[in-house]
């Protein structure tokens, strides 16, 4: 009896946005009297960090510090339409809508500043700390708080912007399947290193190497969260999870966490991750959606590593000890 090691690869792509498009999202943005920019949405944050990443997009576009941005989301009485958080669309769709809204607001912000500073708006720039200043000058500048006060109480102007992103819906050709399903594609290659116990059939994932191309990592720390959390889910899907363990037999379905198996904190693979960035022309600052795909490539990488380790080709998920042992038995019979 032995513990057999193996390595497996998998390389995948994943589409950003609702399949076939037709899934708009909107953003409204306005400045308060004291220069805080409120982004109003009806988008949902499931924990992936949408509220943070769209604030970053707005801060970048407005040229203001992140602290000057507030995100107010998900009250349908006040927030403009969003199709929803699914299909790796949130960052791409909502990010683009927010950038569009912020551009419009920035233009007005610069106009207001130009009037206050008595210069041409085209000669102004933002310095990222809250000042709008004349290019090349250190003296001619105005802080966004003073600027917003002037807009409200002196100039009578609303500093606001509207944004929407829509990829028009593609209709597939029924005969050929010709269609435009996606906005862009992110890419990943996973390498899994496993150990198979040929006595118990238990598979342990020792190491997982994740290389992702995601357009632009708008927030590298949150991108990393998606990679690691997704890799864990991929391992879990590969080795443990199902609501119907004897599919297609409907019996013996788990009903709680003690029966629905997933790896715990003691079962983690050592992870190493690398991000490549090939900005998407239509992405917010080049960003693509990777929230979903991170669970995908680990599964076949593990299947391929199991084969490499012990010669058993697993054809059905999850790769339970029973299936591994039956596979090993079949190999022994075939070799006998």
């Amino acid at each position: 009896m032995a513990r057999l090691r193996g390595r497996g690869f998998a390389a995948v792509n994943y589409p950003t946005g609702m399949n076939l498009g037709g899934d708009p999202s909107q953003a409204l943005i306005h400045s308060t009297t004291t220069g805080t920019f409120v982004i109003t949405l009806s988008s949902v944050d499931l924990g992936q960090g949408l509220k943070t990443v769209v604030a970053q997009c707005a801060a970048e576009t407005l040229g203001l510090p992140l602290e000057m941005i507030l995100v107010d989301t998900a009250d349908t009485d006040t927030g403009p339409h969003c199709m929803g958080t699914f299909a790796s669309r949130g960052t791409h769709r909502v990010g683009n809508a927010v950038i569009m809204a912020a551009r419009e607001a920035r233009e007005i912000m610069l106009e207001v500043a130009a009037e206050e500073l008595e210069v041409d708006a085209a000669d102004l720039e933002t310095d990222g700390t809250g000042f709008i200043k004349l290019k090349g000058s250190e003296e001619k500048k105005i802080h966004v708080v003073d600027l917003a006060l002037a807009a409200h109480f002196k100039q009578g102007k609303t500093i606001s912007g509207r944004g929407i992103f829509l990829k028009p819906k593609s209709e597939p050709v029924p005969e050929t399947g010709e269609m435009d399903p996606d906005s862009c594609q992110a890419h990943a290659c996973t390498v899994a290193e496993v150990e198979v116990d040929d006595e118990t059939g238990i598979v342990e994932v020792l190491n997982m190497y994740n290389v992702y191309e995601m357009g632009r990592a708008l927030n590298p720390a949150m991108a990393h969260q998606q990679i690691v959390g997704g890799a864990w889910m991929g391992i879990s899907h590969a080795l443990f999870e199902t609501t119907e363990p004897y599919y297609p037999d409907r019996a013996h379905g788990p009903t709680d966490y003690s029966e629905y198996l997933m790896p715990g904190p003691a079962d983690l693979a050592a992870m190493e991750s690398v991000i490549l960035e090939r900005p998407a022309a239509n992405g917010p600052y080049g960003g693509k959606g990777i929230g979903e795909m991170t669970a995908n490539s680990p599964i076949p990488a593990i299947a391929n590593a199991i084969y490499d380790a012990c010669g058993v080709r697993v054809e059905s998920m999850p790769f339970t000890p029973e299936k591994i042992l039956r596979g090993l038995d079949a190999l022994r019979t075939a070799n006998a």
């Binding site: 690869f9 998998a10 390389a11 995948v12 994943y14 589409p15 399949n19 699914f86 299909a87 997704g230 889910m233 899907h237 929230g291 979903e292 795909m293 669970a295 995908n296 490539s297 599964i299 076949p300 990488a301 299947a303 391929n304 080709r313 697993v314 054809e315 998920m317």
Partner: peptide, 14 residues
């Protein structure tokens, strides 16, 4: 998560 693609990738990459 990965609707339509996750299981397809298992098959394709296997």
């Amino acid at each position: 998560r990965g609707f339509g693609v996750t299981i397809a990738d298992f098959a394709l990459e296997s």
